[in-house]
Computed example of a mutant assay.
Amino acid sequence: MTYNSEEMQQILEVAFKRQQDGEYTREQIREIALELGVSSESLQAAEHAWLKKAVEVKQGQMSNNQKRKEFKSHLFIFIAVNSFLVLLNLVVSPSYFWAIFPLLGWGLGLLLHGIKTYLSNS
Rank of each mutant, 00 (worst) to 15 (best):
E13A: 10
E13N: 03
V14S: 08
V14A: 10
A15Q: 10
F16C: 09
F16S: 10
K17F: 03
R18W: 02
Q19R: 14
Q19W: 10
Q19G: 02
Q19K: 13
Q20N: 14
Q20W: 09
D21T: 13
D21I: 12
D21H: 13
G22D: 05
G22P: 00
E23W: 13
E23Y: 14
E23I: 11
Y24Q: 04
Y24V: 04
Y24R: 09
T25A: 04
T25R: 07
R26I: 05
E27W: 02
E27D: 11
E27Q: 12
Q28M: 08
I29D: 01
R30W: 00
R30G: 01
R30P: 00
A33F: 03
A33L: 05
L34V: 02
L34F: 05
L34W: 00
E35G: 08
E35S: 10
E35K: 11
G37D: 10
V38A: 06
S39L: 09
S39P: 09
S40L: 15
E41F: 01
S42T: 11
Q44K: 12
A46Y: 07
H48Y: 09
W50N: 09
W50D: 09
L51M: 01
L51K: 04
L51I: 03
K52C: 00
K52Y: 04
K53P: 00
K53T: 08
K53S: 08
K53L: 13
A54E: 15
A54F: 09
V55N: 08
E56C: 03
E56T: 03
V57P: 00
V57I: 12
K58I: 01
K58F: 06
Q59E: 12
Q59V: 06
Q59D: 06
Q59T: 04
Q59A: 07
G60M: 03
Q61A: 01
M62W: 01
M62E: 07
N65S: 12
Q66G: 03
Q66A: 14
K67F: 09
K67N: 10
R68L: 12
K69T: 11
K69L: 13
E70Y: 07
K72S: 10
K72D: 06
S73Y: 11
S73G: 14
H74F: 12
H74D: 11
L75I: 02
L75M: 05
F76M: 13
F76G: 13
F76V: 11
F78Y: 15
F78D: 00
F78P: 01
I79D: 06
I79E: 07
A80H: 00
A80I: 11
S83R: 01
S83T: 15
F84G: 15
F84I: 15
F84W: 13
F84L: 15
F84N: 06
L85F: 15
L85D: 11
L85K: 08
L87M: 15
L87Y: 13
L87P: 00
L88A: 14
